[in-house]
Design a protein around this nucleic acid. Structure first.
Lengths: 243, 243
DNA sequence: GATTGTGAAAGCGTTCACAGCC
DNA sequence: GGCTGTGAACGCTTTCACAATC
């Protein structure tokens, strides 16, 4: 009999939404809200209620029909599923602009990801203090990762330094990487990589802006009815727009 | 006859990958590579060749059978599709840690998104210079957006300031927002929002790390064969891993 | 009466596999 | 022979709709 703990794998799309639910549930708990319906949660998360119910059903049956979900209990279950029952110290590679901001950004430690170390290749930067953490030389990476039991590394180098940083992290024993450099990292399949590509995000927005301007100038193909939607700004209100 | 310019809408997933192809094509051009096959591009982008061909086919038939794609021509076509034939000035709201890093980050202007302005609510911060841009008061937002014809805004405030920042941006006339604050923004449907949620990214990595540790400790359900995969680290090689 | 949990349907996105073209 | 472009198959994700439960 497989342990009750190891249930079916959770779809990627659901995993990506759990942190959003978790944050909202935390806020509700702070406001001393005791329970919430899938509808309410959906509203706050900007998704629809069916999705919330499906997503949460992958964790188990933690709601009560006719009532909703008990906030505190659900927080506990989501945290457990995400592996947030203990802290995950991270190491940041790159003490430049971005590494600086990330180390100084309280949100990390606050949410269970204390910055255990910052390393850089540049000896000039070694020794300075970033967000309360001493910057060390990248050659010390292995020792740091080992001694502090770090599983997650953050690549905050320039594009040209990123692949090397990733390889060093992998060699040091890190198995998950969050990559801020605009490069496709080459790592063993066993290493999980997520990327945050700022320029790409802006380019995606640019695509939609561009389309919009084509439509607005009557270059729209069959129906320029979509343009009407643009005009139908209902001030600043949404909530349950996705229903 | 609809203009040749306004072709079928491009799937979201494809739009999200175009910036990656574009960056790689740019590097190839710098290296004076003249043409590339879908296979080669797929390799560099970390996806498979069928996906590259499907994606590019949405732009039109710009390849040559038996040969591949001419790099310079494809760069032009992708840029045109993404609306990158002109610059898109952006305004950053929030002159804190993150706003600082973003403004100082050369990558923005370099890729066609010059930081036209940084604004903040805090009068203390107004007047200082960030990444070569003077920080102005948020009350001047409308004037700035109007006079500089800004369509894209970046929310780099704290969680508590984000919704207000978004509303001000929308009122000022911005129609696309890149949100770095850990909040679900409520905006009119006509406004495009993309979010970058650092804590969420780390929590997603934590999920996979956590799973891994469950499997490693023999708590795996049916087959712990996946663990073997972990041991099969082939040093640091991947490329075409997705094929 | 309210709300969850979930099969079934619909909608997207990815991959296959091959005809078409150089 | 090599490589693109694409219909068709497949798989994942979302949404619907309703029986089960409080």
């Amino acid at each position: 009999m497989p342990s009750e703990r190891t249930r079916r794998r959770i779809p990627e799309a659901t995993v990506a939404r759990l942190p959003v639910y978790l944050r909202i549930l935390g806020e509700l708990a702070d406001d001393e809200v005791e329970s919430i319906s899938s509808d309410g949660l959906a509203d706050l998360a900007g998704v629809n209620a069916a999705k919330v119910r499906k997503d949460l059903s992958f964790l188990g049956s933690y709601g009560t029909r006719g009532v909703g979900y008990v906030v505190a209990y659900l927080v506990y279950q989501v945290r457990r599923e995400l592996g947030l029952t203990h802290d995950w110290p991270v190491v940041i590679v790159g003490a430049g602009n971005l590494g600086h901001a990330l180390a100084g950004h309280g949100g990390f430690s606050q949410r269970g990801f204390p910055v255990a170390a910052v390393v850089d290749v540049d000896p000039e930067k070694v020794g300075s203090v970033l967000g309360g953490v001493l910057v060390r030389h990248i050659d010390e990476l292995s020792e740091i990762v080992q001694s502090k039991q770090i599983n997650i590394g953050v690549v905050a180098t320039s594009a040209s330094g990123a692949q090397d940083a990733a390889e060093r992290l992998v060699r040091a024993g890190v198995t998950s990487i969050l990559n801020f450099a605009p490069v496709v990292l080459s790592v063993p399949r066993s290493v999980e990589v997520r990327k945050v590509d700022l320029a790409a995000e802006l380019q995606i927005l640019s695509y939609y802006e561009h389309r919009r301007s084509l439509a607005a100038h009557g270059q729209g193909s069959s129906h320029s009815a979509t343009v009407v939607g643009l005009a139908t700004d209902n001030g600043v209100a949404r909530r349950s727009a996705n229903a």
